[in-house]
């Protein structure tokens, strides 16, 4: 359940917690599907932040629920020669590549252990 700016919400998202007015009255209940019309009203009411429910039913931010791009980039295996033009690599660059490959192994191992947990 994470807050997100109303202007960034895409129609179809589901509220994880109720939207209250300045006096604490409920304007929209948790579980409300935010249609384009409701989103317009939220803007008109100056409700700038809402919390959303994730697609899996858990309270997660819809944006954060997407696959993290950086994690994907970090998971790739890359040969040294594709990064540096021929002749520009060095011994230290090779150490960095080896150390990174070692980290990837440990990291993948840790991830798999995590996934096996009930």
């Amino acid at each position: 359940m994470l807050p997100i700016a109303t202007k960034d919400v895409v129609a179809g998202a589901v509220l994880a917690s109720p939207v209250l007015d300045g006096d604490g009255r409920i304007l929209l209940r948790a579980g409300t599907v935010l249609t384009a019309g409701i989103l317009e009203r939220l803007q008109a009411w100056s409700i700038q932040v809402v919390t959303l429910r994730g697609k899996d039913g858990e309270s997660r931010d819809d944006v954060a629920a997407a696959e993290p791009g950086v994690s994907r980039l970090l998971a790739r295996t890359i040969p040294l020669e594709t990064i540096f033009p021929a002749g520009h690599g060095s011994r230290e660059a090779a150490i960095i590549v080896r150390a990174f490959a070692a980290w990837q192994q440990t990291y993948k191992g840790a991830k798999q252990t995590e996934e096996r947990k009930p």
């Binding site: 944006v63 993290p68 970090l74 150490i95 080896r98 150390a99 990174f100 980290w103």
Partner: peptide, 23 residues
């Protein structure tokens, strides 16, 4: 060589933790 390898591991871990930050 040894500490460079350690630094690289720390940076990779730091980038992984920062995935939310990028988003």
């Amino acid at each position: 060589e040894k500490s460079l390898a350690e630094w690289v591991g720390a940076i990779a871990a730091s980038l992984e933790r920062a995935a939310d930050f990028f988003q």
